[in-house]
Amino acid sequence: MDNELLALAAKRGDDAAFYSLIMQHREKMYRIAYTYLKNETDALEAVQEATCRAYMQIRKLKEPSYFGSWLIRILMNYCADEVKRRARRNGGRDAAATNVESHTASGESALLEKVLLESAVEQLDANYQKVIQLKYYHDLTITEIARTLEKPEGTIKTWLHKALGGLRQRLEKESEHHG
């Protein structure tokens, strides 16, 4: 069945349709959640919570063909709140930034570069972070990002441009430090 029909069926209360839609997006959901939360347990929890919220709100989905964007938006909202809550709990310290996951196969220097990039991305404004992550980490198109963030494509292009500029600046500064 085509995804739009599946989304329509899900809206009408067809659990099987909803399940199969979610299953199509499960890997993307997990990876996006992981990008925010940096560990497996919290990322899985985020997927569960986003599924739950999507299930509760499916009847409010206005445009069935945008199910994916809508779902990712729910997930990102949850993750953003979760990150904020953690920061509050840690008294403002950003625990996530220092938390390097262990199961990466890359060598020392690749790891260092990755940490540098992550921290540079995390220093960007929230909207810039989102476009960078969606575009480069998760391979969404400009149109898809525009739908997910509910902004015009022009805005997304501007943000992306500025985010890349900011990122480049920060990375240059960083590499000077680490020479």
Binding site: I22, R26, C52, Y55, M56
Partner: peptide, 13 residues
């Protein structure tokens, strides 16, 4: 566990 997590999410919903 992702599949289970999704089923749980629906159940919770």
């Amino acid at each position: 566990q992702i599949d289970e997590v999704i089923r749980n999410g629906m159940q919770l919903g």
